[in-house]
Simulated assay, not measured.
Amino acid sequence: MLITHVSDCYAPRTGGIESQVGDLAARQVAAGHEVHVLTATLGEAGERGGVVDVENGVHVHRLGARLPFELPVNPVGPRLIRDAFRRLRPDVVHVHAGVLSPFAFDGARIALDLRLPTTITWHCMLDGVVAPLRAVVSRSRWHEMPAALNAVSHEAATRVRQVFGAEVSVLPNGIDLTEWGPAARVAAGDGPLRLVATMRLVPRKRGVPLVELVGAAARRLAPGGVRLSIIGSGPAQGRVAAAVSDGNLEDVVDLRGRLTRPQVRAAYTDADVFLATAELEAFGIAALEARTAGLLVVARRGTGMAEFVEDGVDGFLVADDDAMADVIVRLATDRALLDQMVAHNRSHPPAFGWADVLGAADGEYARARVLMRNA
């Protein structure tokens, strides 16, 4: 099967959509498919305007333009997308969408115009925009488009269903359970509760509130009772560093910057708890990686992380930042509970291996073919 993915963002940009589209495409190549990715993201050396890279067997079409702030858009993107579809004649088009994904939505519109079987995966939460999007959809041809709609979690799918009033499946993110499986754990002993958070440092990930709530928990514990490592970089890095300084938390919070995947896995061997403070997280691939590595996960209730975190079993789902600080204090003072939950996670891997995800994707592709045939 010739599969064409369409995504505004792709490597070398870092983030959940970028990593998932790249991993899914590579896994599909390994399964014997021919896979192409159309993206508005420039290459490592600025490749653009139709340059095709081959990465892990995936043909990556760089259709972006050099614009300020490295925005993944291109004024002539629709023409380039249409030309690519006509050359490739894919068996299925898999569009990856966020709240603002002009390149991806152009790809969906053009694929449907060309009567190509199309599936659209939402990697975002549509909180706050459901009503206006529903109004737009109800007054346009998007209301009856013959595309297979899905989202990366049940929480995200609920919002998409409210917008389109159509069937919306769940196509979760995937993970290599062997690669991210538990390694030999460095025991904490009588040392601090070891917290870690891996994220792109942008405001929506809420790095500053993370520092503040950990500081609040630290003040309720004996000196040296808790330690937080923040892994990641991004435009909010300066504000996060300022929050550490303003809170006199240099001995509590360690800003480690961007790490490679092997370095992240290594960092998890001497961590106990993964913190996820984002309120609009459609799935949370970084949290899934930590959960697979055996860490206890503390995340916000009402997010996609409920797909793999059962409250009180794999970790805790909390209502707000104060509740997250309460959980930190509880785990720091009840090491028996901590060890019990970590032991559970290390012996019970989550059910998001790539075999399951590839099967779910194939199901969506079959649904897309039926919808187009019946349109």
Rank of each mutant, 00 (worst) to 15 (best):
T4Y: 10
C9I: 07
T14M: 11
T14C: 14
G15V: 00
S19A: 10
A30Q: 07
G32S: 12
G32R: 06
V35C: 05
T39Y: 01
A40M: 07
L42S: 01
A45T: 07
V52C: 05
N56R: 15
R62D: 05
P68T: 10
F69E: 08
P72N: 05
P78H: 09
I81H: 05
A84Q: 04
V95Q: 01
P102G: 05
D106T: 13
A111V: 03
L112Y: 07
T118N: 06
T121H: 08
R141N: 11
L149T: 02
A156E: 01
A157G: 09
Q162L: 10
S169P: 09
L177H: 10
L177D: 11
T178Y: 15
E179V: 14
P182S: 09
D190K: 08
R194Y: 09
R194D: 07
L195S: 00
V196E: 00
A197Q: 09
M199C: 04
M199L: 12
R200F: 02
L201S: 01
R204L: 06
R206M: 04
L213M: 07
V214P: 00
A216K: 06
R219V: 09
R220I: 15
V226A: 03
R227M: 06
S229I: 08
I230V: 15
G234M: 03
Q237G: 08
Q237Y: 15
G238L: 09
A242M: 13
V244A: 09
S245E: 12
G247T: 07
E250L: 11
R258V: 13
P262Y: 08
P262V: 05
T269Q: 13
L275D: 00
A276P: 05
L280D: 12
L280T: 12
A287P: 00
A293H: 02
V297G: 02
V298F: 00
V298R: 00
R300C: 10
V313P: 15
D314S: 10
F316C: 11
F316G: 01
A319E: 13
V327R: 04
V329W: 04
L331S: 04
L338Y: 06
N345T: 09
N345S: 08
R346G: 15
W354R: 07
D356Y: 12
G359F: 14
G359C: 13
D362W: 12
R367V: 13
R373I: 08
